[in-house]
Each structure stands twice: as C-alpha cells, then as structure tokens.
Nucleic acid binder design. Structure first.
Lengths: 117, 117
DNA sequence: TCCTTAGTTCAAAAATTATTGAACAATTGA
DNA sequence: TCAATTGTTCAATAATTTTTGAACTAAGGA
C-alpha cells in the first residue's frame, strides 16, 4: 500500500509555500527537521498534540501531496520523513531558511522524541 | 497618507509563506525582484495583466500587510518596493530561494519595465 | 470647474480550506 | 478469535479567502 507522492519535478513552489503557510504543518516540518538531523522517521501519532487524529491525517496528506514529506506505511503505522534532498534540489535554500525562521515563529512546540524503530 | 506596514519584527513566517503561496502574488514578487535588481519602485498599474484593479488592490494589500512589500503613496499612485532587507534580516535566504524557484514555476509573466520616476 | 486617472472600500457571491464525528480498514497482540 | 491500536475516508459544517461590481476618494490636467 504505497501512498501517492509527487516526483521531484512535480513539486510546485506555490503549493509548497501555501502548505507550509499553515502553522500546524509548519510545526510538523520544523519538528521533523529538528529531530535526528532532519533524517528521522516519525509516526503520525507523534503529532497528536497538534490536533485530532482526523485533522492530522488531513494536514499530513497535504504535506505529502505537496512533496514536502514522504509517508511510508509499516504495519498500521505511517512513518514520515522530510523530503529534504528533493526540496533542496528543487528549491535550494528554501527549507533551511523556513526551518530556521520557524524556530522563532511561536509555533506549537512538540517534545523532542527519539525514534527507535 | 501612509498605509500601515508591519515592523520588521512583526513579520510572521507563516503569513509570509501563505501570502507567497498565491500564484498571482508570487508573480508580483518575482517581477519586483527581477526589475532593477529588486530595488525598483513600481506602480500598481504595472500588474494589471494579473487581474482586475479591484482584485489587484486586494492582493497588493496582502503583500503589504504581510511585510513583503512597501507601498508609498505619491499623488494618486502607489509605488511598490520589495522589503528585501527586512525579509533578509528576518528570514535569511528565504526571499532568494523563493524568487529563484519562481522563475521556473510557470507563473504569469509580466514584461520587464523601466520605472523612470 | 469638470473630467480623467489611479487606486480603495464595501458588500455580496463564489470558491477553497479546515475541522469534526461517525464509520471503516488493516495490523498487532492477547 | 477478539480487542486494541493506527490511521483513513466520507459527508457535513465552519471558516477563510478570493473574486466581483458599484460607489467612492484624491490628485492632476484641460
């Protein structure tokens, strides 16, 4: 069961910007970038502090559809990773500046977590 | 008659991102950045190809309120400039990467124009 | 003064996005 | 097998954003 992701070339700048413009989604991206040097996989449930299960599912789908995150299904869980390399290739410097700015944006903060699996 | 602009510190990242996420507004910003090394002043009417007078007024107000552009009134005209220094200070690298990405985003293109006044 | 130009404001309508809860599916563990 | 966990989908609602046209303001020029 593979979820649909855009290819690197399909990633659209206006879409990326508007998807990142939502505080909940920006907090998710900032958290992914902060944890394990931005290479971490993280299950959706990590983000439950940011909203209901349903609403989170909606926001995470937006991130995936915009090409910002990759979602892999493992069992009943979904693991999220930042598509850092794809984004850096397509829009050099964008993710870094957004993540840096997000640290001071007063977004909902999530605890640092360590992903074992 | 001075229009309200946020101070540099008031510029909010999520707001900047969502305002730039609209293709019309992104085209305006890309055009401002392209002309005269991004230092150009440009009257609103330069952008009429992108929409009606009323609609443009709406989008330009969004850009101003987000702190992306500065609008000065001169007679009946409004001149727009990019707030490049403020944005660079607040979110280093963001504007450059957005403008670079916008060149390949298939946005509505405006003619290069030369502002005399 | 009267007209034109440049742009805003307002209210309504249209369109899009976000949020919710109920129902569902798939996996995992007891 | 049964129950719990993880998350999705659907339909409805709420909220926000975008677009439009009519009316308006404020200069500037004839």
């Amino acid at each position: 069961m593979t979820l649909p992701h855009p290819t690197t070339e399909q990633i659209s700048l206006p879409l990326v910007l508007s998807v990142l413009g939502d505080p909940t989604r920006l907090a998710i991206v900032a958290h992914l970038a902060r944890c394990e040097g931005g290479k971490g996989r993280m299950s959706c449930s990590r983000f439950l502090a940011l909203g209901s299960k349903t609403n989170l599912s909606y926001h995470l789908a937006k991130l995936r559809e915009a090409g910002i995150t990759r979602t892999e299904a493992v069992g009943t869980q979904r693991f999220l990773t930042l598509r850092r390399e794809d984004l850096d290739q397509r829009f050099p410097g964008l993710l870094d500046s957004v993540v840096a700015g997000a640290e001071f944006a007063g977004l909902p903060k999530l605890e640092e977590t360590f992903e074992v699996a």
